[in-house]
């Protein structure tokens, strides 16, 4: 034990982590339960995962979720990158403060408000709610996260790199695609992964903006739980947790590697 790790800190840590992760651990463990009762252990089994494969409702929901997440993460990355570029490159333009506030607002806006306002918008526009309204809604709030990540990467970007490319004869557009984009690519990747996981597990905004035939997995789980928890839900939740965890880990690794690279560049300077 390192000095500084007193009995109290260990105790606090244990309770803290237990409080955070024990419920999730129990959920995962009971997804492998033989029994139909969620609270009684009756031996290891994969039968609920098999059951899941036969549940068309859940499978549909999963498919919708993934399609929404893939598309909205991609759109959010494109739009968020443009927003981040604008904020870090154009220091002085009328309404810059307002623009940055508008970009960052979804980060702090209560999801209920965001979801409700989008619902009202879609109703006012008389758009049928379903897959596309879900994509639009998810893109909107994921975009803000991507913009933050891209802007922070661009803050440490040496503008002379772009000037050097143009000086050597590359047009501004070519410079962006050949120099700027490859250098900030890791930020885009981690932004995309973050957007993907955010979209994957969103419930509130999805509930407001989806319609018949476009139920996402979190929505499906939530509605089924109201009728009683089945081990099937545990199984699907476990899969969802695995997905999100992988996404977050991948995003972290990408960002870490970028940090290491930058540190190495800085050291060589």
């Amino acid at each position: 034990m390192k000095p500084g790790f007193s009995a109290t800190t260990v105790l606090v840590l244990t309770f803290g982590f237990a409080f955070l992760y024990l419920p999730i651990l129990i959920l995962v463990v009971f997804s492998f339960n033989e029994s139909k009762l969620v609270t009684v252990w009756a031996g290891f089994s994969l039968k609920w995962y098999g059951e899941l494969m036969r549940n068309e409702g859940l499978k549909d929901a999963a498919w919708v979720t993934i399609r929404v997440a893939l598309l909205s993460a991609t759109l959010a990355t494109i739009l968020g990158t443009l927003g981040g570029l604008l904020l870090s490159r154009f220091i002085n333009f009328r309404g810059r403060l307002l623009f940055s506030a508008l970009i960052y607002a979804p980060l702090i806006m209560p999801e209920v408000i965001t979801g409700l306002s989008q619902l009202l918008l879609f109703v006012a526009l008389d758009w049928a709610r379903g897959y596309w309204t879900l994509v639009i809604a998810h893109t909107t709030f994921c975009m803000a996260f991507v913009a933050v990540i891209v802007q922070s990467r661009l803050a440490g970007f040496d503008r002379a790199l772009e000037e050097a490319a143009m000086d050597l004869g590359a047009t501004p557009a070519k410079t962006f695609f050949v120099i700027t984009l490859p250098i900030i690519a890791p930020a885009l990747v981690s932004g995309w992964l973050l957007a993907f996981t955010l979209s994957l597990d969103d419930l509130v905004i999805s509930s407001f903006t989806s319609g018949p035939g476009a139920t996402t997995l979190p929505m499906k789980i939530y509605s089924q739980v109201r009728l009683g928890v089945t081990p099937e839900i545990n199984a699907v939740s476990t899969i969802l947790i695995a997905f999100v965890t992988l996404g977050v880990i991948a995003a972290t690794i990408v960002q870490k590697r970028q940090l290491v690279l930058r540190a190495r560049e800085a050291r060589a300077d």
Binding site: A160, E163, A164, L168, G169, T175
Partner: peptide, 28 residues
């Protein structure tokens, strides 16, 4: 800038970090 018959050497050198030395020189 990209059409001027001028080249510049930057104080920070501004070498493209994702390209090799040869690729940097070949860029122009």
């Amino acid at each position: 800038a990209h059409r001027r018959p001028v080249n510049m050497m930057f104080q920070s050198y501004a070498l493209f970090p994702h390209m090799s030395v040869a690729q940097n020189i070949a860029f122009g």
